[in-house]
């Protein structure tokens, strides 16, 4: 079964299930998984840091990742075995010097690396940057991450 994760959302699943999120541009798909427990989580993060008191917790890297961590642990993942894979963080419009709004992608990626570093979760694969969108799907039992693009084919990381 494939579980769909919308924008600014997160889900966990296990076993032969998969988690998928569509059309990541400057948003980043963050996955955490424990291959031994066959548990994975996926968050679709849109911005680096949350305004105080936000209810939209999965929208921001700094609130989404600690929460995703507790969700996968609750599902049976062992914290010390957790690994992360990321995809997205593109800059969709080329030639856009000086426009902050279009630099969000690289800044999202930086914020996510910082969070994962603080939480001591190693990032074992990443397909980030560029100027194209991505759809991703993680297989919960293997942690294999499928990345699909419109202009640059598809591959696994």
């Amino acid at each position: 079964m494939i579980h769909h994760v919308g924008m600014a959302d997160a889900k966990v699943a296990r076993g032969s299930d998969a988690l998928r999120t569509l059309g990541l541009g400057s948003c980043v798909g963050v996955t955490l998984f424990d291959a031994a427990a066959q548990v994975a989580g996926l968050a679709h993060v849109m911005l680096p840091s949350a305004p105080s008191g936000t209810e939209d917790v999965f929208k921001y890297a700094d609130t989404a990742i600690p929460l995703l961590l507790s969700m996968v642990v609750q599902e049976g993942a062992d914290r010390t075995r957790l690994r992360a894979k990321l995809a997205g963080g593109a800059q969709m419009f080329a030639f856009s010097k000086g426009m902050d709004l279009v630099r969000i992608g690289p800044r999202n990626v930086e914020a996510i690396y910082a969070q994962l570093d603080t939480l001591r979760i190693p990032v074992i694969a990443a397909d980030v940057g560029g100027n194209f969108g991505r759809t991703i799907q993680i297989q919960c039992d293997t942690g294999q991450l499928w990345v699909r693009t419109v202009q640059h084919g598809e591959h696994y990381i």
């Binding site: 924008m7 059309g23 541009g25 400057s26 948003c27 849109m46 709004l101 969000i104 100027n131 202009q151």
Partner: peptide
């Protein structure tokens, strides 16, 4: 840009 609709339009929420 030419790409997936959501990848582009999500900028409106960023």
């Amino acid at each position: 840009a030419v790409d997936m609709a959501q990848a582009i339009l999500s900028i409106a929420f960023q």
